[in-house]
Design a protein around this nucleic acid. Structure first.
Length: 443
RNA sequence: GUGGCUAUAGCUCAGUUGGUUAGAGCACCUGAUUGUGAUUCAGGGGGUCGCCGGUUCAAAUCCGGUUAGCCACCCCA
């Protein structure tokens, strides 16, 4: 029997759970419409190479991959970006720019599960293709904020840490560090929050070989502690005298002004924070990167994304700039529950029909069918049941009114309508049933 | 993939130094109540005590293994 159970890391959704998942998906979708993102979809199963080409083969351990009956190496999609990037690449020349697309779908990764991480999860994935300027980041991050605020979350609940891989690379290469070493140093920076100073120094030493790395470490540390545009500008102004101010670096700071200025103009400053300590693991990010966290630091990242300007071309398309983010349902759900923002999903009918007996059931069923055709949500007891019992069920169902199909009423050519909240009853002639019900619900 | 903790009804949990037929609350079903409401009362269904093996006259209880869950690491799309 044990082998018939749900696979580890996969969830079943009983109606209560499913309505909560649907609540999240519905809100995401509404936000996407408002922000002008179009919805698309792609296969859940993709060739393994799609992900290998992008991220290198070491990522394979995290993939839910297998060989299909035709001998193809395939994998359940771990994320949406490669699929959508391939889609965009195939029709890049005929799609109107900017391309703002969104997908809400199930993704999979083969990993040991823990809090906030499962093997199957739903994810909101939003991307903007065809705009290289920071205006695209402004638009995308504004949408990211909205897709969290639409649940009632505020700047007191979450914030977005903004970083920049380009800035790091420009800075490091201006210090005569090779591009390759710069990439390695980035992964040291990524871990600096957790690692001890000693450990980070050791890693830097390993990358750079001979010479002191202590000055570099303290510079890196200072950079990760920058929290605003002013501090960022001051940091590089101080260093422009001794070769720290390349043209690329200066232009990059202008991009930062554009990004933060745009977000400020939208009134979103309180949601974002400069934090160069965020680097993000995947190699395909090229510029701005960002992650959303809850303020209390109780949960893992809510969302993450960044710019990936070379991926369209890498996957066979033209040279097309891109920026995107992903947000999963699992951590978001935990946060909403924690903040009391996950509503109890009650689904109540408009009308509960009480049926006297088998004789009366026929008239009741006829009207139930017709009223449903008219769009009313109707429940009734499927089996013969005492009146008292049916009233109890009607009350528990949350229906606004009950219609009583009893022998006494039908003899007179009426049904009784009970207003459940007001506990008042009126008799409605069967001939005018529809009009009466319509009047009740519109009045 | 590595380590630590845990596993009893759909859910939350009791269960004594190993001792008869394993319990409670919630939920569910039925009745009290054959035409009027969430209360109340009574009853009922539901367990191979995660699974396999060992010790013992006797195991939910002790031991070993295994699977799953939680937590941390790795990693993070």
């Amino acid at each position: 029997m044990a082998q018939l159970k749900t696979l580890p890391g996969f969830r079943v959704f009983y109606p209560d759970d499913f309505s909560k998942l649907q609540f999240i998906i519905r809100k995401w979708r509404q936000s996407a419409v408002v922000y002008g993102f179009q919805e698309y979809d792609a296969p859940v199963l993709e060739p393994l190479d799609l992900y290998k080409a992008k991220s290198g083969s070491e990522i394979e351990g995290q993939l839910f991959n297998f060989t299909d009956k035709g001998g193809r190496e395939v994998t359940l999609r771990p994320e949406m970006t490669p699929s959508v990037t391939r889609m965009v690449g195939e029709r890049a020349n005929s799609l109107k720019k900017p391309i703002k697309w969104v997908n809400i779908g199930e993704n999979f990764r083969y990993e040991r599960q823990q809090k906030g991480r499962l093997r199957s999860f739903y994810q909101l994935n939003a991307d903007i293709y065809g705009e290289a300027g920071a205006e695209a980041e402004v638009e995308l991050i504004a949408f990211l904020v909205e897709s969290l605020c639409c649940f009632g979350l505020s700047e007191e609940d979450f914030y977005i840490r903004l970083s920049d891989r380009d800035l790091w690379v420009y800075y490091l290469t201006s210090k005569d560090i090779s591009l390759e070493a710069a990439q390695d140093i980035l992964s040291v920076v990524d871990k600096m929050e957790r690692d001890s100073e000693e450990e980070s120094l050791k890693k830097l030493q390993k990358i750079l070989g001979e010479g002191s790395v202590e000055t570099l470490y303290s510079e890196l540390k200072k950079m990760t502690q920058i929290r605003s545009l002013e501090e960022l500008e001051a940091f590089f102004a101080d260093r422009s005298g001794n070769g720290g101010g390349s043209t690329a670096l200066k232009e990059r700071l202008a991009d930062w002004q554009k990004l933060l200025g745009g977000l400020d103009a939208m009134g979103l400053s309180s949601f974002v924070q400069v934090d160069l300590g965020v680097v993000r693991g995947l190699a395909y990010y090229t510029g701005f990167v960002f992650e959303a966290f809850d303020r209390k630091g109780k949960f893992r990242a809510l969302a993450g994304g960044g710019r990936y300007n070379h991926l369209v071309k890498k996957l066979g398309g033209p040279d097309l700039p891109a920026v995107g983010f992903g947000m999963g349902d699992v951590v978001l759900h935990e946060l909403l529950v924690d903040r009391g923002l996950m509503p109890e999903m009650v689904s109540s009918p408009d009308i509960y029909v009480i049926v006297g007996g088998e004789e009366e059931r026929k008239s009741a069923l006829k009207d139930i069918f017709n009223l449903r055709q008219a769009g009313y949500r109707i429940e009734y007891s499927l089996k013969e049941m005492a009146f008292a019992k049916q009233f109890k069920q009607a009350a528990q169902s949350g229906a606004k009114i009950t219609l009583i199909y009893g022998a006494e009423e039908l003899e007179k050519g009426v049904v009784k309508m009970r207003d459940m909240a007001g506990r008042e009853e009126v008799e409605l002639p069967l001939s005018r049933l529809f009009e009466s019900i319509r009047d009740f619900f519109s009045g």
